[in-house]
Design a binder for these strands. Sequence first.
DNA 1: GTAGGGTTAG
Length: 680
Amino acid sequence: MLVQKWLLKDLKSLLLNCRNSASISKLHALMITSGISNKGAQLIASYARTGDIDMAYKLFDNMPKKGIDSWNALIIAYSRRETPAEAINLYRKMKNSAGVNPDSSTFTVAIKACTTLLDLKSGGEIWRDAVECGYGGDVFVGSSVLNLFVRCGRMDEAMSVFDGMRRKDVVSWSTMITGLVKSGRPREAVDVYRRMREEGLEGDGVVMLALMQACASVEDAKMAASVHGFIIRRGLKVNDVMVQTGLIDMYAKNGKLGTASCIFRRMRSRNVVSWSALISGLARNGDAGAALELLVEMQSWGFEPDSVSLVGALLACSHLGFSRLGREVHGFIVRTGLELDQVLGTALIDMYAKCGSLPCARALFERMSSWDEILWNTMIAGYGIHGRGEEALEVFHRMIQTDARPDHVTFASLLSAMSHSGLVEEGKQWFNAMIKDYKIQPMEKHYVSLVDVLARGGRVEEARSLILDMGCEPGIAVWVALLSGCLNHSKFLIGEFAAKKVIELKPDCPGIYTLVSNFFAAARKWEEVAMVRRVMRSAGMKKVPGYSVAEVSGRLHAFVVEDKGHPEYEQILEIMEEMELKMRALGYRPKTEFVLHDIEEEEVKVKMLRNHSERLAIAFGILKTRPGTRLLVTKNLRVCGDCHEAIKFMSIVSEREIVVRDVKRFHHFKNGSCSCSDYW
DNA sequence: GTAGGGTTAG
């Protein structure tokens, strides 16, 4: 009797404390001898918790009268054991047996099981049952079905359930906010957050994390500052690694690399995620060098890079044209046996393509085990920047034979590949197919490529009509494309029209002024040439500092214009002048119209051209390598027209293959010619 | 309900 009393009092905690199935059995036996029979559900839960699901099931099966608690205990057990399908089956079994009514936890757990399986059909069915049984407004059931819809990407359904919930707690609000962010609707996420505040609820850490992601994707500096301020004011886990990492990511994606680095430096503890967040942020926002330094530093602190940090590093290699390090990253992946998933594979393929190793890119592409849209797009774009339109088309044709759906990026890459290879008919054909067969509304970038391909082919009238028929207001890029075609084909009438539009739209980069000025010079309109210079001066435009990077013997060397600070500047000039004599003998004449300063002396202009960063980088490469070597130089702006001509001659006199990648495309210089047919 | 990753173009 005493045992029975004691058992009843503490049975729950006793059962909870049982670590293994055997000790539960002992208690179970004691319960039977003491005549306790109303704790079946707790026994089932305890057996299940220790992993003895068979015993739990046996017990359940032998129960003469199964109450809701017992059903729930078993359903929970199955859903916890990563056998959610079993949990759903059990739910259905319960529904069909008479005398039991599911309660809030039954529905919550059953719907959760459906969420794990992303089984929208069963989940919706159970949700309907819940509404029928009067649980439609239950906050737990509501949150679980909310989560189901969110995970399955059904935000509109989620929103309607959310609006119907009588009571909302922080979890339901944050599920909604997180869901909107994850499905690419950050502005609506912020709106929901505002509503939450209006209803008198404060966001917690999870909500803040979601808001940081929202700010990261829309570059809302004001919102970003207010989220950060809120975190500080509330003292909201300020030192929490997750929150700090969220802040780093947010600031980095907003281009505030200084703030991001500052927060990173002040962190008391970091993990791989925090390191990777900053590495990716730096790589994406153009500080590739800092990204790579951080990767090295990370390792010196004992953190092994994972696939995310390596993707960031590969992005940095792509930017810099650092093929040696890119290959080393690939080697590291192979050595450490890191799984080559779609994202990592894509980053590697992109790196090989942008570092000039198309065969490596293609070989890796063929060895992938599955191909998603982004992977196809990457390969198409890779051929595109190298002016290999035929191969780009071949890959595209293979793509449309699979279940991959070409998207706007696919066509942007494909059309740009057509324009870089002069495939006019194909460009037109696929532009039309994009609209008609793939139901993709053309965006400005698609128009730019098509105008480019037409104008390059000399069909400037057609290109102009296309611009005038655009559904939206034509931006500067389409006029620039038209103008370059007009310059190439000496179409001065339409060209003048385009040139005026370009000036009207106030270009913000010197290269475009060069184009306009060169066009007017070719048309012998000297007054307009002077006008362009005036406009250019008064615009006070931001001049992006140009630089070129050469990879020589596996190391990177950066050069700016007239790089007097370089330790070997004198030797570089020497070899350059030496080469120039031979180049002139072969017919090279400097195109001084590419000097956009008001300078009279021809000799000074020539000197300025000689000092362009790409030329210094190439001369350095020639100085440091043997004939026959392939040089790779990347430039952050476009290669100037005179350099383009000069490098052709440099490839002859230096007996080297010179590959220059500028912002637009690759130029392969070999034996005095370049892979691209025209400069503009 | 919990932070970081790949493709366009200039």
